[in-house]
Nucleic acid binder design. Structure first.
Lengths: 137, 137
DNA sequence: CGCGGGCGTGAAACTCTCGGTCAAAGTCGA
DNA sequence: TCGACTTTGACCGAGAGTTTCACGCCCGCG
């Protein structure tokens, strides 16, 4: 069960946006792509989904760009995953057979624990320090 | 992030095998497929992987079939997922960019919690009761 | 008003895994 | 030894994820 690259990219870019949250400057795609080593053309799609999910806001035109919609400490990892990948540990098979129901119930319990853990991490815990972050690739 | 149908099938079939663990009878594919409502032709592949992973044993020929390799209480959900899907919450992207390392570290912590939880469920907790299990489709 | 620089949207190409199927090899009973 | 029954391994199409590209839209500035 792999975590998609998309989520990884989203987390990194959001962490980058969290750095510049205070201060009214908007970040450009090219900037973000370079700072977090993400293909710029792919980042366009990701930022679009994050905007539709209500995590970030955007402005078009000259001096356009992206910014967080809420303070970093109110955006959790679970929010990000839900926007990008939908439900965490979603099971798509119908609970058929003799053990189907029991197995589904167990996985739901595990999912609950996972969600609680993911809710504990917020963007401000992902932020690279302002000072460091440059000292090593 | 969906849980694959394969894992769901594997859990159900293993739960079914756990029922008949005491007693030297071996279960046939057709039997298991009917009891847990799994496509028989697909179950072939799953049982093969479970055998290569060391969770079950098999015998060919007439009176062949499948059986658990270890007692049900020593097989955990984590074992099953590891055999079928590999590492849980595996991240495939290289930790590039400024936040790459930090994001990976956070996901590793979440994975650790998830694995601990999955290790807590063993096959004997998935077994349908011997008496019931037939009263409803 | 128009022009340029950014976002917004959609689709095409490619890769890879998932879900499913089929013929071949092995094994035991008669 | 023959044959029926079962596992075993190789094979395939469909669909999702990743990446790239092209073009339209919107905003601020000259």
């Amino acid at each position: 069960m792999k975590l998609s690259v998309k989520v990884d990219y989203a987390c990194r870019v959001l962490a980058q946006l969290a750095r510049t949250h205070d201060g009214d400057g908007l970040a450009h795609i090219e900037e973000l792509a370079r700072a977090e080593d993400v293909p710029a053309n792919y980042l366009v799609q990701i930022l679009g989904e994050l905007r539709n999910g209500g995590l970030i806001t955007s402005r078009r035109g000259k001096q356009g760009g992206y910014a967080l919609a809420r303070p970093p400490e109110s955006i959790t990892l679970l929010d990000i995953v839900r926007v990008i990948e939908g439900e965490l540990l979603e099971l798509n098979a119908s609970p058929g057979g003799q053990s189907g129901k029991r197995v589904h119930q167990v996985w739901r319990e595990i999912r609950a624990a996972l969600e609680a853990k993911a809710r504990g991490y917020t963007l401000d815990k992902l932020m690279p320090r302002q000072a460091e972050g440059m000292y090593y690739i």
